[in-house]
Amino acid sequence: MSSTSAAHVDACWRELQDQHDLAWDLDAITDRREAIAFLQRFESRLCVYSAYAATLYSSYSFVVPQSDHGGITILPDERCWSETFHDIPVHAVEPTGIHILPGETMGYPGLYLKIPSHNRLVASKELPFQDGLRLLIQRYRSRGESFLPVLIKEDLRGFEARMPSLHLHRIDPARLAHCSPSSIDAIKGAIARHLLELFRQD
């Protein structure tokens, strides 16, 4: 990655930490239609990983069946081949225990992140989305790591049958030893750019 590209990616992450304007007033989600509407707000905003294909997709569409039954499928955008990343092993993608929730489930507007404590005896924190994301970026950077959140394709099965929440996984760059540094930087850049689009969304 060129120094100009690296500077752009760093600028994206700095802007993510400085965002304060996310305010989605979601209606209380009580049925399948509303659950799917909640999910679609994240379409191509959070990268999706498929363990079966060992691939990370940054641009895709959710395909929802017309009937009230059937699972949600992912349709990758074949035009965005440069931001589709192959050969990502399963062991490089780990669960975080972090969930995105509609704030209405707790009596608040907007989106919230439920972040588990390092200490299992301490309750998790529920923070407004932008505050929680800044905390996570800082927490991982303090350990010399990157917080690269993704959704897992397999986790979307039956999504609409539960209380809507999205469990975030994370790509661990340290487990991508087979990838070149430029490829790892490209993955980091794609995740950062799409997260910025999420923040800028109305």
Rank of each mutant, 00 (worst) to 15 (best):
residue 15 E to N: 11
residue 32 R to E: 13
residue 156 L to S: 03
residue 130 Q to R: 00
residue 11 A to C: 06
residue 156 L to Q: 01
residue 186 A to Y: 05
residue 68 D to T: 05
residue 97 G to F: 10
residue 145 E to A: 13
residue 33 R to K: 08
residue 198 L to M: 11
residue 138 Q to S: 06
residue 156 L to N: 02
residue 139 R to I: 04
residue 119 N to L: 06
residue 145 E to Q: 15
residue 166 L to N: 06
residue 139 R to N: 09
residue 82 S to V: 02
residue 147 F to A: 06
residue 172 D to W: 00
residue 171 I to T: 00
residue 161 A to F: 04
residue 112 Y to P: 00
residue 88 I to E: 02
residue 1 M to I: 04
residue 16 L to C: 11
residue 167 H to K: 07
residue 124 S to G: 13
residue 80 C to P: 00
residue 134 R to V: 03
residue 178 H to R: 08
residue 148 L to P: 07
residue 33 R to Q: 13
residue 87 D to K: 01
residue 2 S to V: 02
residue 138 Q to H: 04
residue 1 M to A: 12
residue 162 R to I: 02
residue 26 L to S: 13
residue 17 Q to V: 01
residue 2 S to A: 05
residue 51 A to E: 15
residue 177 A to N: 05
residue 30 T to C: 08
residue 128 P to N: 12
residue 180 S to N: 04
residue 76 P to G: 03
residue 83 E to Q: 15
residue 13 W to D: 12
residue 154 E to N: 10
residue 67 S to V: 02
residue 112 Y to Q: 13
residue 173 P to E: 07
residue 82 S to R: 04
residue 163 M to Q: 05
residue 119 N to Y: 05
residue 26 L to T: 13
residue 82 S to M: 02
residue 195 L to D: 09
residue 149 P to K: 09
residue 125 K to M: 14
residue 38 F to E: 14
residue 3 S to G: 02
residue 38 F to R: 10
residue 113 L to W: 01
residue 1 M to Q: 05
residue 41 R to K: 10
residue 145 E to V: 01
residue 104 E to A: 07
residue 165 S to V: 07
residue 184 I to G: 04
residue 76 P to D: 07
residue 39 L to I: 09
residue 185 D to F: 11
residue 150 V to M: 05
residue 202 D to N: 03
residue 192 A to E: 14
residue 63 V to I: 14
residue 132 G to P: 13
residue 153 K to I: 02
residue 123 A to G: 07
residue 167 H to F: 01
residue 155 D to P: 00
residue 84 T to V: 10
residue 48 V to H: 02
residue 124 S to W: 09
residue 28 A to I: 08
residue 159 F to T: 01
residue 162 R to E: 12
residue 55 T to V: 11
residue 99 H to P: 00
residue 100 I to Q: 09
residue 197 E to P: 00
residue 57 Y to Q: 05
residue 29 I to K: 12
residue 68 D to R: 10
residue 24 W to M: 14
residue 73 T to C: 08
residue 141 R to G: 03
residue 178 H to V: 07
residue 147 F to G: 01
residue 197 E to K: 11
residue 67 S to K: 04
residue 79 R to T: 15
residue 144 G to S: 06
residue 140 Y to R: 08
residue 166 L to E: 08
residue 23 A to H: 11
residue 191 I to F: 07
residue 133 L to T: 07
residue 15 E to C: 08
residue 173 P to I: 01
residue 85 F to K: 08
residue 77 D to K: 11
residue 35 A to G: 15
residue 118 H to Y: 05
residue 15 E to I: 05
residue 197 E to I: 08
residue 114 K to Q: 14
residue 129 F to P: 10
residue 126 E to T: 09
residue 42 F to E: 07
residue 152 I to A: 15
residue 153 K to T: 04
residue 50 S to R: 02
residue 156 L to V: 06
residue 38 F to V: 14
residue 26 L to C: 13
residue 118 H to Q: 10
residue 38 F to W: 12
residue 168 L to W: 01
residue 4 T to A: 12
residue 160 E to Q: 13
residue 136 L to K: 03
residue 105 T to E: 15
residue 161 A to L: 08
residue 12 C to L: 14
residue 156 L to A: 03
